[in-house]
C-alpha cells in the first residue's frame, strides 16, 4: 500500500506507444481448455460433431476467450503468459495488482484455427486513492487483434489494471 505515489514523465511517456505484434493462436485444445476453465457444459465448445450440428465449421471460441499468446520462455511473462518487452513497461514499484474492468468487442465470432497478431498500448495513466488500498496507479490499456493472413482487425479489448 502506497501513502504517496506520483506519475513521472518517464511513466507518462509510455502512453500511446504501440507494442510490437505478438502471435496469438486459437486451437481446438485451447478452446476446450478455456471452456473447461470457465465451466461451460455446452458441447459446442468441446465436441466437433456438436459444433458442426450447431452450424460451425470448427469449435467456436466462447465469448471472452481472447486466444492464447504463443509462449516462449524468456520472452513471455511466466505469470500472465503474455509477451514481455514488446512495448514500454512502467517502472512504478507497486507490488499489489487488481483487475479494474475488462471489455471485448468482436468483429466476427472467433474459432479454433484462427491465427492472430496482438498489439497493445497504454491509453491512460491515472493516480487514484482508496481508503483500503491507499494511492493506486490505474493503467488503462487497449489491445488490437488482427488476422495473420489478411491484417483484418477481428477483436479489440480494453482493460484497467490497478497497482497499489
Amino acid at each position: 500500500m502506497a501513502a504517496e505515489f506520483e506519475l513521472t514523465d518517464e511513466m507518462l511517456a509510455t502512453v500511446g506507444v504501440e507494442s510490437e505484434p505478438w502471435p496469438v493462436e486459437l486451437t481446438t485444445t485451447s478452446v476446450r481448455a478455456f471452456a473447461r476453465g470457465v465451466g461451460y457444459s455446452d458441447p459446442r465448445y468441446y465436441d466437433l460433431d456438436a459444433a458442426t450440428a450447431a452450424g460451425h465449421d470448427s469449435l467456436p471460441a466462447p465469448p471472452c476467450y481472447l486466444g492464447t499468446p504463443v509462449f516462449i520462455p524468456g520472452q513471455s511473462d511466466p505469470t500472465f503468459s503474455g509477451p514481455r518487452n514488446t512495448g514500454p513497461s512502467i517502472r512504478h514499484g507497486l507490488k499489489g495488482l487488481l483487475d479494474g474492468g475488462t471489455e471485448v468487442h468482436y468483429e466476427r465470432p472467433l474459432k479454433a484455427g484462427d491465427r492472430l497478431f496482438m498489439t497493445s498500448k497504454i491509453s491512460k495513466l491515472e493516480v487514484k486513492e482508496s481508503k483500503g488500498l491507499g494511492k493506486m496507479l490505474v493503467v488503462t490499456s487497449e489491445q488490437s487483434f488482427t488476422e495473420q493472413d489478411t491484417g483484418d482487425v477481428v477483436m479489440r479489448t480494453y482493460g484497467q489494471a490497478i497497482y497499489y
Partner: peptide, 8 residues
Amino acid sequence: VKSVACQY
C-alpha cells in the same frame, strides 16, 4: 456474442 464489458 459481439461484446462483453464489465467492471470489477
